[in-house]
Amino acid sequence: MDTTFFMPPSYLDQSEAVAERFRRLRARPVVMDVRSLGKVFPTTGGQTVALHDVSFQVHRREFMCVIGASGCGKSTLVRILAGLEVPTSGSVLVDGAEVRGPGADRGMVFQGYTLFPWLTVKKNVMFGPMQRGLSESAADVEARQWLALVGLEAFADHFPVQLSGGMKQRVAIARALANNPRILLMDEPFGALDAQTRAQMQHYLLQIWKNVDVTIVFITHDLDEAIYLADRILVLKAHPGEVREMIEVPVPRPRLPSQFGGTEFGAVRSRLEELIHPKSEAMLDELPMIRLAQAGDDVE
């Protein structure tokens, strides 16, 4: 057909290899089943609906990103998944069992630095295993393995205050993984990092995910980050927070930074922009140009 030749590439187009990978992914067992989740916050003189009828399934060893404009309730969602907040309606099942409060089967990495400042890096990683009842020596062995995985064995005896932001988050990942969780929840974990460190951390995370049997649900507001990392992207819409679309990312793996300019990447990106910032272009044109007279022609 002639017409498709002139059409821009669609985010729905998948190469045969990618389509095959998604078929395999869908065949894997469901680790987390989210069933029509709703969350209502009481406010003065009414209530705010943060989440409304959110349903999705995460398959084993899947990397899912959750994306949406600010205020769409993505942080609320991940906090409910972690068990830190109770949903108003609906339920979350992990391996078929309903979530009732926080648990070691769902590890979490927060945006802020949440390492325990009074513990050394190694003791931070040992925290989870020791809560599980492991002996100190067994937890020590375990912690060393996970520190080696994130490349920080040399800093085992440092205190968190002595580490850079990126290193702190690597320790936080190791600490969460040391519990052998079924699911690793990540709430904008690289949001506070500078662009270069963030790119590095994304690369590290994919390496870790490749080597460890863990399913990841990753919250972000960075479109490129979501496309670079995810198998599927859950797009939320704000007010109320609802599922807008579940996108299967057609970018083949292994992911490389060079793919940022590729056609599949661009297709997903423009779709995401359409879903999340539909009016951004129009609004730019509407900006009043008050300062133009002073600025003169110096600025194009």
Binding site: G101, G107, F110, T114, F116, A176
Partner: peptide, 13 residues
Amino acid sequence: DPALLEAAQTLGA
């Protein structure tokens, strides 16, 4: 810091 308490809870404390 409540974030530390939450982090500890997600670690099974």
